[in-house]
Design a protein around this nucleic acid. Sequence first.
DNA 1: CGGCATCCTTAGGGATACTG
DNA 2: CAGTATCCCTAAGGATGCCG
Lengths: 159, 159
Amino acid sequence: MDPVHDRLTDDTSNCPIALTLEVVGEKWTLLILRETLYGVARFDDFQRILGCASNLLAARLALLVEHGVLSVEQYQEPGQRPRPQYVLTEKGAALMPVITALQLWGDRYRPDPKGQVAVVKHRDCGAEVQLSLHCAKGHEIHGAAEAEITRGPGARRKA
Amino acid sequence: MDPVHDRLTDDTSNCPIALTLEVVGEKWTLLILRETLYGVARFDDFQRILGCASNLLAARLALLVEHGVLSVEQYQEPGQRPRPQYVLTEKGAALMPVITALQLWGDRYRPDPKGQVAVVKHRDCGAEVQLSLHCAKGHEIHGAAEAEITRGPGARRKA
DNA sequence: CGGCATCCTTAGGGATACTG
DNA sequence: CAGTATCCCTAAGGATGCCG
């Protein structure tokens, strides 16, 4: 193979960030997931709260289910007919740091004129949730400068 | 105003997550930021590595500069003509947890067949960077179940 | 080298209407 | 209530070419 053609026609294919964005990168997806963290589970509620088109919502939910981020469960209130509800899987719940990171950044750097809209709190003690980076040995990392990203074994050559 | 019309024509306007996504939610934006964390700073390098169209790249960079996430600096190597370079501002560096969260999730749940492409390490000790959620009082939060999101004072009624 | 201008094409997404 | 199905339309994005 000509090394010149060793181009990245598709960087997406080997970057974990891009791979993640494939799942949650579309406009409404993270907002849907945010709502699931609030406890929203029903189609109707998603739509009303988010105000997005039903076809879109259906498509996103299906995608998330397909990716194993959400699962559909049937539930039935006594006397009612059964309804589907969407709940986070473990894989989906693991996206919480992403949501939280986005939220904390937004709170800090794009404050809403109307005041804080949502707060993430520890269920037990009620204190606000924070997020920290630290290394495997326990050292806290305060900023980008204290870390470095190195291309691992799977990375493309060249740069 | 008719309460019925108290609809969220634009939920975007008061959700910190949506506000953040306004800045970094587009397809290439986070990948550009990822590269800045790698130390990439020049137009040419971004384009070659990401493989995206130059007009797009220019537009994204301009947007990020406009939002104060990146700043443009002129630098000049001796004997060379001056060139602009794009560097993270403090505001931009604060997005690192977002990037890291996405990356860690991708590594864990969407492993690349070719092996890990990139690793984030603590500059001092070389150990891998991790991310944790904890509350203001120091309690570690292990999953979404231990936290709850509550709509704050600025939130819309109804739901 | 670091862009902006232009053209073109498509995919994403909003609105609306219909169905089990 | 929980979606499908359709239509339309804009904006995002790729390709290409030009300019300081």
